[in-house]
Design a protein around this nucleic acid. Sequence first.
DNA 1: TCAAAAGTGTTCCTGTTACACCCATGA
DNA 2: TCATGGGTGTAACAGGAACACTTTTGA
Lengths: 244, 244
Amino acid sequence: MIANFVGLDTQIPWCIINTNMTTPHPSTQNIKVAVDAAIFTIKNGDLCLLLIQMKKSPFEGMWAIPGGLIEDHETSLQSASRILKTQTGLHDVFLEQLKTFDDPGRDPAGRVVSVACWALVPDHQIPLKTTDKYLDVRWWRVGKLPELAYDHQGIAKEAVERLKSKIQYTNIVWSLLPEEFTLTQLQSVYEIIVGSSLDKRNFRKRIRDLKLIRPVGKKLAGAAHRPAELYRFRQRKLEYVEIV
Amino acid sequence: MIANFVGLDTQIPWCIINTNMTTPHPSTQNIKVAVDAAIFTIKNGDLCLLLIQMKKSPFEGMWAIPGGLIEDHETSLQSASRILKTQTGLHDVFLEQLKTFDDPGRDPAGRVVSVACWALVPDHQIPLKTTDKYLDVRWWRVGKLPELAYDHQGIAKEAVERLKSKIQYTNIVWSLLPEEFTLTQLQSVYEIIVGSSLDKRNFRKRIRDLKLIRPVGKKLAGAAHRPAELYRFRQRKLEYVEIV
DNA sequence: TCAAAAGTGTTCCTGTTACACCCATGA
DNA sequence: TCATGGGTGTAACAGGAACACTTTTGA
């Protein structure tokens, strides 16, 4: 099959990265491990990211993605879950690892490797909790983020990309919606995230075929028009869309 | 648009994860940061993973994905690149972050968070380098891996999944092939990774449309049949397939 | 002249896109 | 009765899948 491959070029190897060939097992390693949690929601028709305003120098007054050092006994996801609960009071939402940010210069205070996680929470009325560690906590429209501390601009960018991509082949939007919702609400969430409008009939056909949601049997009355059927996700946990 | 969302259910929150609400900023954190590098190649028609045989207790004699603590001044990718060069002598290949493995119990010797990376290298004749740190180094067929140390079975599994998925929408196979290759070799690599055979005419049509490769203008003679045209990738770096 | 792999187009089918009208309700 | 958003089907199109024979070489 793959038998007659041409041999590898005999070019002289050169090194892209200025590697230091000392032993990779220093007895004392001076690196801290943190978590940053990019928490998204949809508010008033916009995708929003939760940011905290920093109290401590050198980023005093600047906005940042909430985070902190992980504890010796917890995983990064548990740590992110803790941050999520502290800031929003929410739990049991979509939350996963994004990427680890480990540029040696990313934190001016010292070497900190950060495992970035991201989460999706439904729009909710519970007020955000300002702790004494921060000056303020707020939802910011993803399209109009302020300048961010550390390398958090990069984290935000990658998280948004992941969201846009993952919404296409999974059921993660369950975590942005209330338990019961209408098809119009569902479509609206997709439109906000992908950033363009979708055809109503095609959208409904596709959603029906995916079998991720089921009708509840109730209608949402109270508006001056035909009441909408309510739906629920079959699973409120990550499912991949079946590619038949 | 998204204005008339139903309010969030008033169910009583319960906690999935047994979070410990002590301060997330312990002054002394006792966690080490490592890198593990899952290095793949294709040998004799099989997808293979590079494993080292461990010297140290408690995994003495067991096979593992090569890795080590990262140094204070380097990123995880630089660290992985160093490992890659040490083991294979290669450089300038596809290498990216996979996921961070951080279960507190994953290393019996203490808390080690590992940033797993993965790489693809072309089949090459350069012998693998056994250092005095390991008993042995070998390529193992991915379908027949031995029992692995730590949580390396999980790393291997996720890396293979990522490879199978990423081959579909990027040009990463450039890193598994010599600089010049035939369309049959290219198809063979795809077949080995996806695990099923592909139609020759459809494959060539698709590859032609993707415009990732270009003919070199040479033919590979020497076999008792019509000589095959040689091709090169336009870019020997990550490109995403254009979805027209 | 034979064996072996290289190379090349067309038809069919399936899934995606485009598109317009009636329905149920509250005011 | 009117304004508002909810709800529904079909026809055209495009991209993917199935499929077989001729070419070029070395032995």
